[in-house]
């Protein structure tokens, strides 16, 4: 038990998370945008404006704007760091992995979650899981829209779906 009761805030707000929250990555405008999505959490009003630049099937860059809590902001910042350089398929797989971790799963052996690992504690705060996932499901929908030939997708965290 922590100083503050049965839950440990430090598990939710790890130093790495707070650092991403204070200095979010991926805020620079992209020179070119191939896919966009707007993510919204109707429960709390958090919003994510996501733009993705593609180089063929490879993600060249991610820009993420909007406003959200520390968890949502940090998660988006980590995403901006993690996904460039990956293929669309790899990024989509990462969304699914992170979703399953947030819903109680574990990182598959051999996976490289990077800083995202620091968000694992969020799964002990069920009401905050949607905050961590919002940027990722927005990315999923941006990529899906791009595959289908649309330029823009609308996402709400309610459509995140069961694990």
């Amino acid at each position: 038990m922590s100083e503050h009761g049965e839950v440990n805030l430090d598990e939710l707000y790890r130093e790495v998370v707070l650092d991403h929250h204070r200095h979010p990555r991926g805020r620079h405008p992209l020179p070119r945008v191939d896919a966009r999505a707007h993510g919204f959490n109707p429960v709390c009003g958090d919003e994510v404006e996501l733009a993705v630049a593609l180089d063929g099937e490879r993600i060249a860059g991610v820009e993420i704007q909007g406003h959200g809590c520390a968890i949502c902001t940090a998660s988006g910042s980590m995403m901006a760091e993690l996904v460039p350089g990956r293929s669309v398929g790899e990024a989509e797989a990462q969304v699914e992995t992170f979703r399953s971790v947030m819903h109680g799963g574990t990182w598959p052996t051999g996976s490289d979650p990077g800083d995202l690992e620091a968000l694992e504690g969020v799964k002990h705060f069920p009401v905050r899981v949607k905050c961590a996932l919002l940027p990722w499901v927005t990315l999923r929908d941006a990529l899906r829209a791009w595959r289908q030939g649309h330029a823009q997708a609308e996402t709400t965290s309610e459509e995140e779906g069961a694990p």
Binding site: H4, G5, V7, L9, L12, Y13, V43, C44, G45, D46, H67, G68, C69, A70, I71, T73, F125, R128, C131
Partner: peptide, 22 residues
């Protein structure tokens, strides 16, 4: 400087129930 969600989570660890959101 602190999002209402984060405030509410921290307050909750103090046993304080407030609403955060729209």
């Amino acid at each position: 400087q602190i999002h209402p969600h984060d405030l509410a989570t921290i307050l909750d660890t103090h046993g304080v129930a407030v609403r955060a959101g729209h």
